[in-house]
């Protein structure tokens, strides 16, 4: 099994930390992982993205041109990455702020109202965990227990009291994901 994922959105949405939790979850079940961020001046208030690979084998290139899954959280990223999903792959997006919805016919498309649900829960910071939950519902590549272990590893100890809240957000994301198109 090799899953090649791009997570893309605005800086501050928790794109990089979501990737980190996913990568740590992979380690918790003895898989190979890589986490390659876009870094540079474009991150300041602009777009942020991270390529995460989880695999049973040694990971070759951490930098890719096509992806099994794209998790897209703003319009700029939709414009850039919709066309980089492999045919038959998965595109998951949050429709909040999206004006041009995906148009490809050869990929599986899902959406999750992450921003809206996070606002309803009264905590915008758990937005990325809702999206992560939605992704794990579509592609359960890591076991639930390993995601929790991954969360523990990624969060500094002083934030461990927030783990139940994050767990709730993941569960909410799992429940909230909607199918837009299946191929």
């Amino acid at each position: 099994m090799t899953e090649e994922i791009i997570i893309a959105g605005f800086g501050g949405q928790g794109v990089l930390s979501m990737g980190k939790i996913l990568a740590y979850s992979g380690i918790m079940q003895d898989q190979e992982v890589s986490w390659m961020p876009s870094y540079g001046p474009e991150m300041r208030g602009g777009t942020a993205n991270v390529t995460v690979i989880v695999s049973d084998e040694r990971i070759s290139s951490p930098i890719l041109r096509t992806y099994d899954t794209a998790i897209i959280l703003n319009q700029q990223s939709m414009d850039k990455f919709e066309h980089e999903v492999k045919p038959g792959g998965v595109l998951l997006y949050d429709p909040n702020g999206i004006t041009h919805h995906p148009t490809r016919k050869d990929i599986n498309i899902y959406k999750v109202e992450g921003a809206k649900k996070a606002a309803e829960m009264g905590n915008s910071k758990i937005f990325n965990m809702i999206v992560l939950g939605a992704y794990l519902k579509i592609k359960p590549i890591v076991k639930h227990e390993n995601v929790l272990k991954g969360l523990k590893k990624s969060l500094p100890e002083r934030h461990h009291k927030l783990i139940p809240l994050n767990e709730d957000a993941i569960n909410l994301g799992m429940k909230s994901v909607e199918v837009v198109q299946k191929v």
């Binding site: 990568a23 380690i27 190979e32 992982v33 890589s34 986490w35 390659m36 961020p37 990971i59 951490p62």
Partner: peptide, 10 residues
């Protein structure tokens, strides 16, 4: 290089 420096792996 910058990629090996910035990427995370186990």
């Amino acid at each position: 290089d910058g990629a090996i420096g910035q990427m995370m792996e186990k």
